[in-house]
Computed example of a mutant assay.
Amino acid sequence: MAETLDHHTALIYAMVTVSAVDRIMTDAELARIGEIVSNLPVFADYDQDKLVKTAEACGEILGEDGGLERALGLIRGGLPKKLHETAYAVALEVAAADLRVRPEEARFIDMLRDRLDLDRLTAVAIERGIRARNQVL
């Protein structure tokens, strides 16, 4: 039987994975994940006490051979089509949290965009919105 995630877990996996791909999970990234889970309407019915265990489970998968591909498959499999843009947006928010998107994070973002079948125009619009939200002088 194939492993599947619920939509909450899939969204959290997207955020944890983008934070972990460069092997540096910053405090800013972890705080942003917590803020997103606390404030986004899609998480209104999520038990926030599960967040740490969910993040740890994702980390275990990422530590396996082929873990990144497995995580991407689980993310896609756990999301209804209408949450694909949301997953992309929250992953970008976490990548931007420390005001520096590392090459590994950018590569994962590209992989996530492709896996979620987001068209380029939609992806660019989401990216621009995230950039505008995180702009500093």
Rank of each mutant, 00 (worst) to 15 (best):
T26W: 01
A96P: 00
A132R: 10
A28H: 12
K53S: 13
E104S: 08
A28N: 13
T4G: 03
T4P: 00
A57G: 04
V21G: 01
R32P: 00
C58V: 11
G77Y: 07
L72W: 11
P80I: 11
L116T: 13
V37F: 05
M1V: 08
G59P: 01
M1E: 09
D110A: 08
D110S: 15
A44S: 14
R107M: 05
E56D: 13
G73S: 11
E35N: 15
I61P: 01
P41Y: 00
G63Y: 09
V21K: 03
M111F: 04
M1G: 15
M111S: 07
N134C: 00
D6F: 05
I36D: 08
I109E: 11
A125F: 01
N134R: 13
H84N: 14
V37Q: 06
A87D: 09
V21M: 01
A89W: 02
A44K: 15
E60R: 14
H8K: 04
V16H: 04
L11E: 12
H8S: 07
A28K: 15
E35P: 00
L72C: 05
I12V: 15
K81S: 07
A14V: 10
L30F: 07
T122R: 03
P41K: 03
K53E: 15
V18N: 04
A91L: 09
M25Y: 03
R120N: 12
L11G: 06
V21A: 03
G77F: 04
A125H: 10
A97L: 03
F43Y: 08
V52C: 00
A57V: 07
V16R: 15
V18K: 06
D45Q: 12
D6A: 10
A123H: 02
F108N: 04
I130F: 02
T4E: 04
A14G: 10
G77C: 02
F43P: 09
H7S: 14
A123L: 00
R70N: 12
A20T: 06
E93Y: 01
A20K: 08
P103A: 08
L137Y: 09
R102S: 07
A132P: 02
E104K: 08
G77R: 04
D6I: 12
G34K: 12
G59I: 04
A31R: 15
I36C: 10
T122E: 05
L51D: 06
I36K: 11
E93A: 09
V90G: 02
L51Y: 00
C58K: 11
E29V: 07
M111L: 12
A55R: 03
P103N: 12
D22R: 02
Q48K: 15
L92F: 05
R115Q: 15
D65A: 14
I130G: 01
R131K: 14
G63I: 06
A95V: 09
V136P: 00
R23H: 11
G67F: 05
D110K: 10
R131F: 09
D27E: 14
V90T: 14
R131G: 06
G59W: 01
F43W: 02
A20G: 02
